[in-house]
Amino acid sequence: MLRTRTLMAGMLSIPVNAVLFGTGAVVVLSIPQFQPYLEYILPAVIGMAFALTWPVAWKLAPRLRVRNDFYPNLFRKT
């Protein structure tokens, strides 16, 4: 049985990877001095995005959970 944080991090990993890669690709492609080196820099951006995906998703997963102290009136029975 997997922990809730692990499942949430797994579900977050795809959008987190897309955002990290997209941000890196936009930064690399928008700098004209990188044009001659794109064949080396873009694979590095892909690898860096892939390497950073799981730590970022693991850090974000607990923040997505609803807790009673954040929303005290959400679970109150009226």
Rank of each mutant, 00 (worst) to 15 (best):
M11N: 05
L52N: 01
P55Q: 08
V19T: 08
I31G: 00
R67K: 14
V16D: 00
Q35C: 00
V45A: 06
T23R: 13
L2V: 08
T6W: 04
Q33A: 14
P32T: 07
P72L: 05
P43W: 01
R3G: 11
T4Y: 05
M11S: 02
V56R: 02
R65C: 03
M8T: 11
A49Y: 02
Y37V: 12
P55V: 05
E39P: 05
P43E: 02
T6E: 04
Y40V: 15
E39Y: 09
T23M: 14
N17F: 12
D69R: 15
A25G: 01
N73Q: 08
A9L: 07
L20D: 00
V16H: 01
A18P: 03
F50E: 03
A44R: 13
G47A: 09
A18L: 14
F21P: 08
I46W: 06
V66W: 04
F70A: 11
Q35K: 15
R67T: 11
G24D: 03
E39K: 14
R5D: 04
W54A: 11
F50M: 15
R63Y: 03
V16C: 03
Y71K: 14
P36W: 04
L64S: 06
L42N: 01
F34A: 13
Q33S: 12
A51P: 11
A61W: 01
I41N: 05
D69M: 09
V28Q: 04
R67G: 03
V45S: 01
V26P: 00
Y71S: 12
L42V: 10
R5L: 12
A49N: 03
W58M: 10
P72R: 07
V16L: 04
D69K: 12
F21M: 13
P72Q: 04
Q33D: 06
T6H: 04
L60A: 09
V56S: 00
G22A: 05
L7R: 15
